[in-house]
Design a protein around this nucleic acid. Structure first.
Lengths: 97, 97
DNA sequence: TGTACATTTCGTAATATAACTAAATGTCTA
DNA sequence: TAGACATTTAGTTATATTACGAAATGTACA
């Protein structure tokens, strides 16, 4: 077994960590319809403060999972990695071990 | 857009969170060869204390990602969800957005 | 039975995360 | 240009995570 080098796994672990929060996972699933969605939609559906949603979106963006597009006063987010859909399906179905 | 209900996403988010640590992600990748591996192998390769590895393994097990099998004095772990392999591949390849 | 070994559990201290309020930024429109 | 609006950033506090050493558990074998 090869030696573990933390740096080789940091970035990838960051992606999983970003998905490892109920609110963020829900956001990603909402975006999985392929459409763009506005920050305000998330705020309303989740029921937390604007700042909190904004912070979650920033984490997903930093992880390279979503991308944003400013149009007028609003900001729209979309999924950037299409293969994430099958990931969500798999992890969602995983059985107890 | 439907209202968010945290409970619907808790369990699944827990799985992602379990993968969201460099050491745990590395462990899962080691198990991705389909073989069982002993706790002591991980301890040696990662270079942290036994208690720390044991804790990481417990988190992965609680998330339903790995399962264990005690044989004699040793404990062996294996992956329990084969579809995880494609998940790892996808998230590993995800591009910056 | 006693001791060594592999692993887990417990208690603790340092660090990271989550959600909030308040303040800052950027964009449209009067 | 001033004000309203959508969002982000900063600062703060409570809670969670991480890694550790020490103690506990369970198994094998002398």
């Amino acid at each position: 077994m090869l030696k573990f080098d933390k740096n080789d796994y940091r970035r990838e672990a960051e992606r999983f960590k970003a998905l490892g929060h109920p609110t963020r996972l829900w956001i990603v699933r909402q975006l999985a319809d392929g459409q763009e969605h506005c920050v305000c939609e998330f705020v309303e559906a989740v029921g937390v403060k604007f700042a909190t949603i904004s912070q979650h979106l920033a984490i997903l963006k930093a992880a390279g999972i979503i991308a944003d597009d400013k149009r007028g006063k609003q900001v729209f987010y979309r999924l950037c990695c299409p293969c994430l859909l099958s990931v969500l399906r798999c992890v969602g179905q995983a059985q107890e071990g």
